[in-house]
């Protein structure tokens, strides 16, 4: 079964990648990493050489930070929404 997943990006990521929202099609129950690989420019931004996610980006799956799910192995289902942005740290 194919899952439709909405990815929304914000702030400087929009400027860098030139888009706001995309719908990607993956196998249902794919991992977050497999979803990100569908968007190579986004994947390159978020994942380092050791295949680890950069910690300065907030990645939410249906409003919950993926660290509180299964990290990069979080399973993505049809209709899931992923929000990604680098929160500002300054003041």
């Amino acid at each position: 079964m194919v899952a439709r997943v909405k990815i929304s990006i914000y702030s400087s990521l929009r400027e860098e990648l030139g888009w706001k929202e995309k719908e990607v099609l993956v196998e249902d129950n794919a991992t977050l990493m497999e979803v990100l690989k569908k968007e190579p420019s986004l994947y390159e931004r978020l994942v380092n050489e050791k295949e680890q996610l950069r910690s300065d980006y907030m990645i939410l799956v249906n409003g919950i930070h993926l660290q509180f799910k299964d990290g990069t192995r979080t399973r993505i289902r049809d209709g899931d929404e992923i929000a990604i942005f680098p929160p500002g740290g300054g003041g």
Binding site: Y10, G88, G91
Partner: peptide
């Protein structure tokens, strides 16, 4: 919090809403 042209805002109501640790579990 801010950086460059961008910033974000949220209110934490303990026991009711997500807290900052929910969205940023460790400092970058």
């Amino acid at each position: 919090g801010v950086e460059g042209w961008y910033g974000q805002l949220m209110t934490v109501i303990p026991g009711k809403t997500p807290c900052l640790n929910c969205i940023m579990p460790a400092p970058p």
